[in-house]
Design a binder for these strands. Structure first.
Length: 279
DNA sequence: GTGCTTGTTGGCCA
DNA sequence: GTGGCCAACAAGCA
């Protein structure tokens, strides 16, 4: 489910529900996998009694910070979700972590267990947080940084390259398709063969899609998880890409779908044309 | 039963 | 060593 903007949405949801309150009890039911290198016991000891004070989202990850210096990191994987539930909430089958506060319980749910929870004690940011690539809306994401990366991954299809978190933190499958559709670049085009104008358009649309998605999904709107199209207008590819018989919202032609870079990819053949390689 | 799925990782191979 | 590809992880849904 979650890419950049949805992650920010879930962060807010937890933060607004519990910031300023002390943790009364931690119930950790997860398989070892969910807690990565941390353990359920370590998380329990690490945050019980501490107050949630700060939180941040970056790429597809979140960090929740407590007044004793503890860091709780959350990655939602493909199917993870965060919710706030009334006190006395009974954990369901796929609820791996429940943090009980005086007035609310925060719940991490993840049926497929591709997500995970990390823990760190101490005021300095942990590796798993500092290693995240610079924000795509920051100045660090320059045209040169983009072009250098495209050259380094010259032979890979641009779609696959956009999914590489080391340079495009927070971009997931649907955002990648949306960006390429707007930039009028075929998803199978090798990254190293983009023309100067295409690479400029690509950078512009990466930023536009990130900015717009954040505004629409993580803003004050009425976004509902599982019903993303409430927040995203029909002028985007997003609302058309999964339907059988979906059509391009700009040209009206039937959309195409294929496996590119190992992921289902959707594009508009009217706007996105594969160019033969030039020597 | 089949064949999908908004993600990441490690192993294999050129 | 680097880059590219792919299976695996696990569960739900149509």
């Amino acid at each position: 489910m979650p890419e950049l903007a949805e992650v920010e949405y879930y962060r807010k949801r937890w933060h607004q529900a519990a910031a300023g309150q002390p943790v009364e009890r931690v119930r950790a039911h997860a398989a070892k996998k969910t807690f990565r290198e941390a353990s359920a016991a370590r998380i329990r000891h690490g945050i019980t009694g501490a107050q949630l004070v700060e939180s941040e989202a970056a790429a597809k990850q979140m960090a929740f910070r407590f007044d004793n210096g503890a860091w709780l990191g959350v990655h939602l994987g493909m199917t993870g979700e965060l919710s706030a539930q009334p006190t006395g909430y009974r954990p369901q089958k796929h609820d791996h972590l429940v943090i009980e506060f005086p007035k609310i319980s925060l719940v991490f749910t993840d049926p497929r267990m591709f997500g995970g929870v990390r823990f760190h004690a101490g005021p300095e940011a942990p590796d798993w947080w500092t290693r995240i690539a610079p924000d795509l809306l920051s100045n660090a994401f320059s045209q040169k940084a983009l072009d250098d990366f495209l050259q380094r991954r010259a032979k890979a299809p641009i779609k696959a390259v956009l999914l590489m978190q080391e340079r495009f933190p927070g971009i997931g499958n649907w955002m990648a398709d949306e960006i390429l559709w707007r930039a009028e670049i075929h998803p199978a085009q090798p990254a190293g063969t983009l023309l100067v104008n295409e690479s400029k358009r690509l950078r512009r649309e990466i930023r536009a899609v990130c900015r717009n998605a954040l505004n629409r999904i993580a803003g004050e709107g009425d976004f509902i998880p599982h019903d993303l199209n409430v927040g995203i207008p029909n002028t985007w590819l997003f609302n058309h890409r999964w339907q059988d018989g979906g059509t391009c919202p700009r040209s009206g032609v039937p959309l195409e779908r294929a496996d590119i870079g190992g992921r289902t990819t959707c594009w508009s053949p009217a706007r996105q044309v594969l160019r033969p390689n030039r020597p």
